[in-house]
């Protein structure tokens, strides 16, 4: 019987500070704090739920969910992210998750050699500094139709929690981190806009533990309010299902119009006795 010892979510880009140093530093501090909280939980591995950006999966091939089952993952190196080291994977955990999900109505694809772009590599900088601990990437698809509904993303998180609780060895400690969002528009005329009101509403719903409001959103509604990039919210919802919708703490939020995106992060503590 393993344990999920904590859940986190964060936006997954870092860009130039020039001209908006205080805001950029606040974002960096927020991500650093998430890394420190993960460190304090001493997890054996971190499951990072995120999406690729046309590097490993593009218009040639998309799959609803793909798990990185490799022994290690070397970052692709986009955005200047260090790619001179490999992040260890956890093949046995990853394959076991695929098997367990298959027995619980989710068929997950696998990828043996993924070169994580910023979607997984930016959160890894904080969750697994210099490859300090294994990372299992769980990729969602937010680029091609259809995107998995919010409710199903949450449900997959519950299956992940069930796997850790009922299949994994006693004493194994797992952190789940959802990465992406918040509101942003990519390659469309609205690029550069941030919907701060919607971003703050989302953070408020996570703080309230309002699973119904979050999983009741349709992908069309999410896209209308927070853009084709904001659909990455489904990554947060997989994490949230794994934490059974416990109340979240907002770690940081900045409406980073200079970066064309709302940037936010939350922590979800495991309720005492759970």
């Amino acid at each position: 019987m393993g344990r999920i010892v904590g859940g986190f979510a964060t936006s997954h880009v870092l860009f130039s500070r020039a001209g908006h140093e205080a805001q950029a530093d606040a974002v960096f501090e927020g991500m650093t704090r998430i890394g420190q909280e993960i460190e304090a939980l001493a997890p054996d591995l971190v499951v990072i739920v995120s999406n690729d950006h046309m590097i490993n999966f593009n218009t040639l091939l998309q799959a609803p969910f793909v798990v990185g089952i490799g022994m290690s993952h070397t970052p692709f190196g986009d955005l200047g992210i260090p790619a001179d080291y490999a992040i260890p994977g956890h093949s046995e955990f990853a394959q076991g998750l695929v098997d367990h999900a298959n027995a619980h109505d989710f068929d997950l694809g696998v990828i043996r050699e993924v070169r994580p772009d910023h979607g997984v590599a930016i959160p890894s900088l904080f969750a697994s500094p210099r490859g300090k601990r294994p990372v299992v990437p769980l990729y969602t698809n937010v680029d091609m139709r259809p995107v998995t509904p919010a409710r199903r993303a949450y449900r997959l998180g519950e299956v992940l929690a069930d796997y850790v609780k009922n299949v994994r060895p006693a004493g194994e400690r797992v952190v789940v981190l959802g990465a992406g969002g918040l509101s942003h528009w990519i390659g469309v005329p609205r690029q550069g806009d941030v919907n701060e009101a919607f971003d703050r509403w989302l953070l408020d719903r996570f703080e309230a533990g309002d699973v119904g409001a979050l999983t009741g959103l349709t992908i069309d509604e999410i896209e209308a309010e927070s853009g084709n990039g904001g659909v990455e919210l489904v990554n947060w919802l997989v994490m949230y299902g794994a934490l059974h919708g416990a109340r979240a703490r907002t770690i940081y939020y900045e409406p980073m119009t200079a970066w064309w995106t709302g940037m936010g992060g939350i922590a979800v503590d495991v309720p005492a006795g759970a």
Partner: peptide, 10 residues
Amino acid sequence: TFLMVDPAHK
């Protein structure tokens, strides 16, 4: 150059 992790953060 804008879409890069800032050297100060790196």
